[in-house]
Amino acid sequence: MAGSFITFEGGEGAGKSTQIERLKSRLERLSHPVLVTREPGGSPRAEQIRSFILEGQAKQFGPFAEALLFAAARIDHLDKTIEPALRRGTHVLSDRFADSTRAYQGSLGNVDSGLIDGLERVALKGTRPDLTFILDLPAEVGLSRAGQRRASKGEGVDRFEQEDLSFHQSLRQAFLAIARSSPRRCAVINADRSADEVEEAVWAIIGERLPRLTTNPARPLDVA
């Protein structure tokens, strides 16, 4: 059986990486094979493109050029990492995917939605997440969290974190709009609370949408 593909989206500081690691741990405790990946990146060539984008070198070429670079990275990510894992029955958890391009470059960069649709058709080749979590919280809270994280790790501000507050407020609305347009795939989670509370909310959605992941695959449920 093919693995499930789950993505996590949201603004800066929403806690995506934390929740991905927590979900990974829960699934592994149930003996599910799990692969954690990220975008941009997730494969050697895609990681090279990631560095170019997040260092701000692509910004001078405009949002459409950034969207093209994200699509190029996504093609390699899918070919080399995501699709092979899904085929061998591994569940894939990705920190960002195509929705981020639609939100950042599409909604905020004003790249025509038809162009974004075309890039998705070429890059995804029919591969879509089974479930997407939109971790939602006020932009001010997310930026504060992101700043604290950077300070603790001694990291600098990347290409997108350096944008002003209005950018991040608009980004939040862009993700919520994506969730409204794809309610069967997307689940909005209130991320403005403790990590433990968010984790339980994520797990509850997993139980509703992908119940096979809440049981040990080596111990199938008895059929009456």
Results as ranks from 00 to 15, higher is better:
52 F>M: 15
24 K>P: 09
159 R>S: 07
20 I>T: 06
78 L>E: 02
94 S>C: 15
207 G>S: 06
207 G>V: 08
157 V>A: 04
202 V>D: 00
48 Q>I: 13
145 R>S: 11
174 A>Y: 01
37 T>G: 06
59 K>Q: 15
120 E>R: 05
58 A>S: 06
156 G>Q: 07
157 V>D: 04
74 R>E: 08
67 A>H: 02
105 Q>K: 03
213 L>E: 03
44 P>I: 12
17 S>T: 15
130 D>S: 09
101 T>H: 00
50 R>F: 10
92 V>H: 03
164 D>F: 00
78 L>H: 03
29 R>D: 15
129 P>A: 14
179 A>T: 03
75 I>C: 14
99 D>N: 12
53 I>K: 01
116 I>M: 07
90 T>Y: 01
82 I>L: 09
152 S>R: 08
20 I>K: 03
169 Q>I: 08
37 T>Y: 02
208 E>L: 05
151 A>I: 04
22 R>E: 08
84 P>Y: 06
167 F>Y: 11
24 K>R: 14
76 D>A: 10
32 H>E: 10
192 D>S: 10
86 L>E: 07
187 A>Q: 11
161 E>P: 04
51 S>P: 08
155 E>Y: 00
17 S>A: 10
59 K>Y: 12
76 D>W: 00
214 T>Q: 09
46 A>H: 05
1 M>H: 13
193 R>G: 15
127 T>L: 07
172 R>S: 05
173 Q>P: 03
10 G>H: 01
10 G>Q: 03
130 D>C: 12
165 L>D: 05
169 Q>K: 11
180 R>H: 10
83 E>L: 12
193 R>A: 15
54 L>S: 12
143 L>M: 14
95 D>R: 00
14 A>C: 15
185 R>L: 07
156 G>H: 04
209 R>L: 07
16 K>H: 11
107 S>D: 08
152 S>T: 13
106 G>M: 00
90 T>H: 02
177 A>I: 01
54 L>H: 10
93 L>F: 02
104 Y>G: 04
193 R>H: 12
140 E>H: 13
106 G>A: 05
64 F>Q: 08
68 L>M: 07
69 L>E: 02
45 R>W: 00
33 P>G: 14
181 S>C: 09
111 V>K: 00
64 F>N: 07
162 Q>N: 01
170 S>Q: 09
50 R>L: 10
99 D>E: 09
11 G>T: 05
80 K>I: 04
211 P>I: 09
49 I>F: 07
127 T>R: 03
145 R>M: 10
98 A>R: 04
22 R>A: 13
56 G>L: 00
215 T>Y: 05
139 A>F: 03
26 R>N: 09
52 F>N: 11
118 G>N: 06
95 D>V: 12
181 S>M: 09
104 Y>L: 02
128 R>I: 13
157 V>Y: 00
90 T>Q: 08
130 D>T: 13
89 G>P: 11
19 Q>N: 11
151 A>E: 08
81 T>V: 07
212 R>F: 14
117 D>C: 08
53 I>S: 03
104 Y>Q: 02
48 Q>T: 15
30 L>R: 15
206 I>M: 08
101 T>E: 00
138 P>A: 12
103 A>K: 01
150 R>I: 11
90 T>C: 09
137 L>Q: 06
94 S>M: 02
72 A>P: 08
99 D>M: 02
